[in-house]
Design a protein around this nucleic acid. Structure first.
Lengths: 234, 234, 234, 234
DNA sequence: CATGAATGAGACTTCATTCAT
DNA sequence: TATGAATGAAGTCTCATTCAT
């Protein structure tokens, strides 16, 4: 029995499909999970491909059967973990019925549950850390993550201003101010926060996020009785 | 005492020494500058010691004469570039005569000029990126940078609340919210921002920082006519 | 008898067999063609077995069903492409009616059309290149190709001398001098000549071969009026 | 004592220069020699860099201190072993006082002594074998070896024709016919000839070369009483 | 017969650190 | 002090061969 064998569900032996087949279909997911964990833990350069393979329960060679290089593996991890959620957010923005404050809270909390609180949030760290050493990854990430994500948040700010809910502040800068603490939180959780060192009093991420949201919404709120700026989008 | 410890800030009184002597005493400074530039550009692991030496105009062996390892070199870089400013900030806080809003603006702008806008701001990136792989650096950084910096910002928030200028919000979280966009800006400048990829509309750091400050102060401001909370510190 | 041995020339009498059957019997031929092309293009070690399989339209596993190893596949390729022609040449020598000069021209031109001008000529390159790394292939090739081919050319030279057409030169060396430019031409075509680099003025292979032949025959020709040497064979 | 140490002359300990220094200067030569031997024995791709290093008595890393890659190492080997001699031949051609037949014999014999009979002759094999897989080597070799060598031999043929010693045959083809058997001999010596297989009756290289030369000169010789062709160069 | 997923040894290259000079 | 040659462990990626299906 090879060391990986016991990772397959040993209860239902090939009830629906032959074992080899089942493995083949599960492989990419297993590899992606192992790779995410390792990239987040060590960074892109320091993660070793054969540890990814070992954690996924396969040999080094098998990894390269599915992804032709470490870089492509990383890109697949990013697409799998961040790509879907951003698209979802953009759809939400288009169809959301409530106030923009509620929309922002919803998007932020969803992000926290699906990205911030999970390993996926560590991807930000990897990017921040190593993007300068891997230009191709930089281009890929800018195009497939940063650009769409900023579009989403700029959309939220613009909606608030157009609907007269927010003051007419510069859209781009405010979008940055919205995103920054979220990313920052994710970075923290996967760097210093992951170390066993005491640094200041501990903060509860949810509390931090809520403080951030209320501070932001308070700052954005149009003072009652002011005329809403209809064409504030820059 | 490890051999590097006394080298932290060796700008010594060599006013009348012969040229070669002065040269020798300038070595640590040159090495620290070269190391800072390289660590920020490539990260800790990817920076090559012999490139540090080359940039400082010495041989690889000489580097090891001054710093016993790459880690000690990095720690010296951190002490040299971040240590002084934090101590200075704490002194400012104790003696500042004006409003807390002014104090915050002053501290933030000073940080930008001395850290954020220079290579020193890249140290944050290096830490965020690689602290998990180098536990000793983690402990060092938490104790010598993060802890004092947080103490400073918590002090500012507490001052504002005690003086009735800010609302009685949780001190720790607000301090985080103050720091986050600053660090975030520094991280951005030295990672994605340093790449030649287009990602959203460009932002002017000073503008971003000012937007952040005003948003924050607006959110913190005690509505006129409210009773100041004297004992809000948690 | 090793499993591959009986597959050397399996073009079998499957005249009326159903399509799938014919397909199956065509397999070895398709594999041999793909293997020849690839061995000649990349060399023995650098040719990848799964590219051979892919080009032949089968899976990698199937290749190993027909040939137990890469070495056996290569030997089959050699037998299939060089074996027959040499035997044919020896028969021609025994029965040829014309002058020895004509015989040499005939043999040389036939070689060019069937070997030199085709992929089969590339086998020489592979042998020259890698025979030292694969002793078993060396022994095989010496016994099944080099030895018979030399026998043929020594026979031609001896015929010319015995019939008084050639001068009484050492048979073995002259045979070498006959073969060398042919092999050399084949080597060139499949190495440097196959690269897109400019190297000297290009040469037309047929012209080169003819120049070689005439030079050789001119050099071999017995000056008119000389007594032919009856027993010159060494 | 490291395994390489006894390769240094152990009799005169640092008489002229310190040991380390002596090693440094000798290194490139030692590495080049080891590399030549190994490339010729195994081919370019199959030769392992750490075996080159081991044979030169250094560690793997040291090799890369002197040559930045396997390809550059190979190019250095070619330049060192073939470059000089070709240049020398071109000078000889320009200044040679005797007949062209003598010049050709001289050049051929020098080639044999310095290249053909030594490991350097094996470089031809490596090129023939692997040039298609390494385009950069192809370009390098065409420019630095093939082109100059052909220029030399075309020069010899043209000289013979111009001086009325040779018949007015096409220069380029005759040059090829001159070179071919030489290269062929070298190839043979380092491929099949290096194997312990019996293939035909053995030939003495010098005899073969002389047979080739006489055959060639006989074929080239202008029949007595013929008018020399002054402008035959194509 | 046929498939193709899986293996794992092995190749080139990098780089922090040492140490003889 | 200062040098820089030398080391060797470690990392990514390849590919002939096997074997369960």
């Amino acid at each position: 029995m090879r060391p990986s064998e016991h990772l397959v569900d040993p209860i239902a032996p090939a009830a629906t499909a032959p074992a080899r087949q089942r493995r083949k279909e599960a492989r990419p997911q297993e590899l992606l999970d192992a790779a995410l964990a390792l990239f987040v833990e060590k960074g892109f350069a320091a993660a070793r491909t054969d540890e990814v393979a070992t954690r996924a329960g396969v040999s080094k060679g098998t990894l390269y059967l599915y992804y032709p290089s470490k870089e492509e593996l990383f890109k697949a991890v990013v697409r799998h973990n961040l790509g879907a959620l951003i698209a979802e957010g953009i759809e939400t923005l288009a169809a959301y019925p409530g106030t923009t404050a509620e929309l922002l809270r919803y998007v932020t909390h969803t992000w926290w549950e699906r990205i911030g609180a999970t390993d996926a949030g560590g991807i930000h760290k990897v990017i921040v850390a190593e993007v300068r050493n891997f230009p191709e990854i930089a281009a890929f990430y800018a195009a497939e993550v940063i650009e769409p994500a900023h579009r989403l948040f700029r959309g939220i700010v613009a909606r608030g201003i157009e609907r007269g809910e927010f003051r007419a502040l510069p859209v781009n800068e405010v979008a940055h101010a919205m995103i920054a603490p979220m990313i920052f939180l994710a970075l923290h959780r996967h760097s210093i926060g992951a170390c066993e060192v005491a640094c200041g009093e501990p903060v509860e991420p949810r509390t931090l996020l809520d403080t951030h949201l209320e501070l932001l919404l308070n700052g954005l709120a149009r003072p009652a009785g002011t005329t809403p700026a209809r064409k504030a989008r820059r």
